[in-house]
Design a protein around this nucleic acid. Structure first.
Lengths: 340, 340
DNA sequence: CACAGATGTGAGAGCGCTCCCACCACAGGG
DNA sequence: CCCTGTGGTGGGAGCGCTCTCACATCTGTG
């Protein structure tokens, strides 16, 4: 390893001189273009290795207008973000797929008003080729921002207001999953089946509710309570349900985090799970569902695969344009454990 | 908003022409350099707004050799990463501080051998100004990589083998925290105090063990068990301890995640907490410690603040060089809940 | 053996910006 | 009234790369 390297990095020019060829030829070798003869290619490759040449990304971007980077925008309150492994798992799926494509992941966390302005500036500033964003709430201005900046974008979860026909997103089959959960409870012989929803400004919450209503269109309204996808929200909603409908014998909870809160309240109120009240969650987050008491029966969605699929769609969008791309709906399935 | 904007973005040149000044003057205005007269500055600012000019980052980087971006490198197995909100909280602290400095966060997840090569290439490729990395294991090649690439780096957690005198890191006072935990258990009148360690190739684990040994230098070796900072590891270690030392009356567990696993095992074995066995964790991760049964007494470290401090140190390192920068040790404190 | 066509290589422009230096005012002192 | 000094502005080079196009070389065919 030459020490001089750390001083000034070698440029294409330097490699060209060292190999006795032109800049253009070195560029061809570096970028793997065809039409360089074997001996020349090998000579260049040796020079590259010898000098420790690494292309300057900025110079490349300047002319190609490609950045080989995408923004992952996460707009979510702190609580949800860090109590819930959903986020990390999603991110991992994206990271896997992006690195396979030699594309960088620029993470933008958005928490307040000021952040929106900053992110807007960033997106307009042509730093990235595209954007991925997930778990948007109804009034979120982010989609308008990427659209304004002309940035190809793929959403995680169906946006509540689709910007236009060809909005591309990846979603779980939340409605189908909701049906699965309720059907399972019915098969168990339960008749007073309650539901704790997530925040109704997210389609993941409303779709799960629709699934519940598909199976139980005439359910007693007192069997419905609203949570916010947090554990504390699940506790509140469960308490409320037990007050309004003490005879309930099952509850389908909108996500695992709320379900774990619900279990706590059920224990406190002396209800046995699943004997008195059967509980089904949604997500199958292992660090929660495997560790509740009893372990949670839940609807599994493959979050990492969703992250991967989002990324694959974005990469195709960047490479080939929007033609033929359609939203992807990922299947869900019931995972039986002890709680129902 | 002019539509033409989306076609070809205006350049400095265009703004200069529009405002009737030279490129250099526009550049001065954009970068806030002094020495531009009021009327001229205002004219330029108006043109910038009117044309919707946004500087091209690549062109700027090409000449300044600054990227206004830092890499955050996370080398950790999936389990630890996403079961443990530690990661997200850390990231949030970094994000807050970086965005305040108008600096981008490029996230690099490292999971296997191949990833190391890729990350090495990326770091050598001059995409970022510096790097942040945390929770390294003993033999991790990452520090050598950033060093080789000449990238200023700040570590989260004291590296087990410091690369040299002036390695800059931020760490919790793990040893002091360990002492706090054990002293608390002694004050409670406990006499057979066990310890479940984390993976001993991380200083956070060894330092907590040292804290335990500071207070109990002659502890019975059967009161020591090794975990790996995962919930399952905590279960295994707790079971092992109960077998080896059935008379233990307290356990200081190396982190909250393992402590929650230990609690499960204690319940299974019919031990009452805290009556039979008092339990103290470490980290104070709210989504765990508040929700265990009983809620966990634990040693609090402010993870978000650690992330912020790491970032502040890195930004100072980038701006002013290493002179006068020293590692930061963040205080820990005991948070009393019901488990001890 | 000349010539069209394929194939490989090099020269040069230019991406959008910063920064050095030259230039031009207009002060004020000799 | 000339000359030096200061503050403001413009000209131009150049960062490291890609890409077009012209040119050199090498086939194969009439």
């Amino acid at each position: 390893m030459s020490d001089s390297r750390s001083r000034t990095r070698p440029t294409l020019e330097a490699v060209a001189e060292h190999a006795g060829v032109s800049r253009a030829t070195v560029s061809r070798v570096v970028n793997g273009s065809p039409g360089v003869r074997r001996p020349v290619r090998q000579r260049v490759e040796r020079s590259i290795a010898e000098l420790g040449y690494v292309p300057n990304q900025a110079a490349r971007t300047l002319v190609t207008r490609r950045h080989d980077a995408v923004a992952v925008i996460v707009a979510e309150s702190e609580t949800r973000l860090f109590g819930d492994p959903f986020f990390g798992t999603h991110l991992r799926g994206m990271s896997l797929e992006l690195t396979a494509a030699d594309c960088q992941l620029v993470l933008l966390l958005v928490e307040n008003r000021r952040d929106y302005a900053r992110v807007g500036r960033y997106l307009a500033g042509q730093h990235v080729d595209g954007a991925l964003m997930f778990s948007l709430h109804e009034d979120d201005p982010l989609p308008a921002m990427t659209r304004q900046a002309g940035l190809p974008t793929v959403f995680g979860g169906r946006p509540i207001r689709q910007m236009d026909e060809d909005t591309i997103y990846v979603d779980s089959d939340n409605r189908g999953g909701g049906r699965l959960a309720v059907q399972h409870l019915i098969a168990l012989g339960r008749r007073r089946i309650a539901h704790i929803t997530g925040p109704l400004d997210q389609t993941s919450a409303t779709d799960r509710l629709l699934g519940y209503q598909d199976i139980l269109p005439d359910a007693d309204p007192s069997l419905l309570a609203h949570g916010d996808f947090t554990r504390a929200g699940g506790e509140r909603a469960m308490a409320q349900l037990l007050d309004a409908a003490p005879d309930l014998d099952a509850v389908f909870v909108g996500n695992d985090l709320m379900a774990s809160g619900a279990l706590t309240v059920l224990h406190e109120r002396g209800k046995r799970v699943p004997e008195d009240v059967a509980v089904v969650g949604f997500d199958d987050i292992e660090s929660i569902a495997l560790w509740t008491d009893p372990p949670l029966t839940t609807v599994r969605q493959d979050v990492e695969e969703m992250g991967r699929e989002m990324t694959r769609l974005l990469l195709r969008l960047l490479a080939e344009g929007p033609e033929g791309l359609t939203p992807a709906i990922m299947p869900t399935r019931l995972v039986r454990r002890a709680s129902a």
